[in-house]
Amino acid sequence: MSAKTDNLKEVEARSKAALPQDIVDWIGECKKRPHPESQLISTLHKVQGHYGYLAKEQMDAVAQLMQIPASKVTGVATFYHFFRLHPRGQFIINVCLGTACYVKGADRVVEKLKLELGIDFGETTKDGLFSLEASRCLGTCGLAPVVMIGDDVHGGVTPDKVPALLETYINKARSLRKQSR
């Protein structure tokens, strides 16, 4: 039995307003098919794809529209590594810490990155430019050690190459800012 409350319409409207229209439509589509609740992870992927992270407001809206308890939605969002509950920097630096990268010295690349950026894993620099994250394996072991910045995969990264690598993205951010002006 799905919970019906007196202010259902109002809550539903608020939930719809909290999400982009395409995701609201997607949830509507899911509900027409068998096992709609199984699409929770796909829906959270879409929300994170749109906002970059999962905020409480959006998770509650998803829970409401999919008629899944908010506790379950939070449970799923916190269980899987891929989902973020906080906003992230403009560029996500994803250091691969898979076995191949590890034996080829990824730990020292991590040290250098932490030193240069002044942040730990899971944190974002004060200027909002970079977030540092660790990945279990990016699957490009042949190029180890590997660092992914944004969508670009960089192979054969040594601690020495780190400053120049970061510099390219700082410049990229600068030119992006100029363009938007």
């Binding site: 096992h35 992870i41 959270l44 992927h45 379950k72 899987y80 590594h81 989902f83 279990r136």
Partner: peptide, 26 residues
């Protein structure tokens, strides 16, 4: 197609099934 979301344990078949069902992959 169903997407995983970064949980190693989902390689285990019963966990994978839970994940497809939209649950925590345990």
């Amino acid at each position: 197609i169903r997407l995983g979301a970064g949980a190693f344990v989902c390689g285990e078949e019963t966990a994978l099934i839970h994940s497809i069902e939209g649950l925590r992959g345990q």
